[in-house]
Simulated assay, not measured.
Amino acid sequence: MRIRAALIATLAMCTVLAGVNATPATAEPPAKAKQAKLLKVQPSPTPKGKIAVYVADVNTGETTFSGFEDPQPLAVASISGPYNPPRATDFILDPVSSPSAAYGFAGVGTKNGTWLNRIGARSGNWYGYFYWNSTGGRFKSVNMQPHAAVRLTGSATVDQVTITQ
């Protein structure tokens, strides 16, 4: 009986650490967001096998194209859940560090929630955008093409992910 109680307590702790209960749907629409300002535009199409990388100031929303990079392989996390570990093809919200989990999304539509300690997103095979909240307010990212990344200059809370196609 003690082993069963210990297993239940451990499962509850893993659920909290994984953020399973951190993405509740909300009945109220999120606050109006400021559009992130794109200061430096991507000069050419993304080369095959590369991702376009943008850097967004977490407090002002100012976004600049910083170059093309090789995609980073995903680390396999020990946290289980429906979106973790995400697939490379998913629209992914990147965590600042462990124990926060990377969350992957697929399919067309909008998902509302509260994803704390995010430092950016990768679009995988999708077109889309996301909203973040910081001390500077609420911001909407640039519209991301497939295989792009937006990196925030600091930690923020993401409250909405939209995949358009």
Rank of each mutant, 00 (worst) to 15 (best):
A52Y: 10
F68G: 05
G49F: 08
S123Y: 01
P43M: 02
F130I: 09
Y83A: 14
P71L: 06
P45N: 10
G109L: 05
E62M: 01
A27E: 15
A33K: 04
K48H: 08
P95Q: 05
P29G: 11
T89Y: 03
A121R: 10
L17D: 04
G137K: 04
L11E: 07
T110H: 03
D90L: 02
L116M: 13
Q35T: 14
L116D: 14
V108G: 00
T46Y: 00
G67A: 01
L74R: 12
A102C: 01
V150M: 09
S98R: 09
Q35I: 05
K34R: 08
R87E: 15
K34C: 00
F130R: 02
L152V: 04
N59W: 04
P29Q: 11
A121G: 06
F68R: 00
F139T: 03
A22P: 06
A148V: 00
A52H: 09
Y129L: 11
N84H: 06
F139Y: 12
I119K: 12
Y103P: 00
F105L: 07
I119V: 15
C14P: 01
P43G: 11
L152F: 12
S98I: 05
T135H: 07
V20A: 09
S78M: 13
G124T: 04
G137T: 10
N125M: 04
R151S: 13
K48R: 10
K34D: 06
Y127S: 09
S98W: 08
G136C: 09
V55T: 14
T26Y: 14
R87Q: 14
A56N: 05
N143H: 01
V41Y: 06
A33R: 05
L38V: 11
M13Q: 08
V58W: 00
P43S: 11
F139V: 05
P73A: 12
G120T: 10
Q72G: 07
Q145G: 00
K37L: 12
G113F: 06
Y54H: 07
D90Q: 04
T89P: 00
G107H: 03
S80Q: 09
L11R: 07
P82N: 08
N112P: 07
P45A: 12
D70A: 14
S141C: 04
F91E: 06
P71T: 10
T60H: 05
P146A: 08
